[in-house]
């Protein structure tokens, strides 16, 4: 099983996200992350999908996406040629005895302290999804109170844009 990152340009219209996720659900595609946002142009929204599966299933996922009239362009992003990042907020219970250890680990992962009280701390970490998993694993020895993640966003490296590739 491989993990694929797929960027999807869709018409920026009401209900499009529902059409895409409904198709994923009924065809049982294994989606580990999905984000959607507006783009540099108002006509399009951009969906970034992390999909786990075999090559044949990925082809099927792309073909099925193209059958939705609201889908304008689908592009698989290779890990090497793209930048993929996700933001996580993680809230930890913090007793005096572990405070320094936790903050040291946070520095190790370039995490930023965005809230701090006597009893707790919220760390903001931006990294690729697997690194975020590693941060969580590392913090399990402490008391994790809450986690919230944005899901992965991804852009290809270099000056080329997805819209240029679409229009080629």
């Amino acid at each position: 099983m491989n993990r694929y990152t797929v960027a999807v340009l869709v018409r920026n219209q009401f209900g499009v996200l529902n059409r895409v996720t409904s198709m994923f659900r009924r065809r049982q595609f294994n989606i580990s992350s999905l984000t959607v946002s507006e783009t540099e142009v108002p006509e399009y929204s951009r969906i970034t999908v992390l999909f786990d599966g075999a090559e044949m299933q990925k082809q099927q996922l792309i073909s099925q996406l193209y059958k939705l009239p609201d889908v304008c362009f689908v592009r698989e992003l290779s890990p090497k040629a793209s930048v993929s990042l996700e933001l996580m907020l993680i809230k930890l219970e913090l007793s005096q005895s572990v405070r320094d250890t936790v903050l040291a680990i946070a520095r190790e992962f370039d995490a930023k302290v965005v809230d701090s009280t006597e009893a707790s701390v919220i760390l903001q970490v931006t990294a690729d999804s697997r690194q975020l998993d590693a941060v969580i694993d590392r913090m399990r020895e402490f008391s994790i109170l809450e986690i919230c993640r944005t899901g992965c966003v991804s852009l290809e490296k270099g000056s080329t844009t997805i819209r240029e590739i679409m229009n080629q």
Partner: peptide
Amino acid sequence: ITGITLPITKHNYF
């Protein structure tokens, strides 16, 4: 009905 027929139409419109 657009929600109900989402998976059984090529496309639908409200």
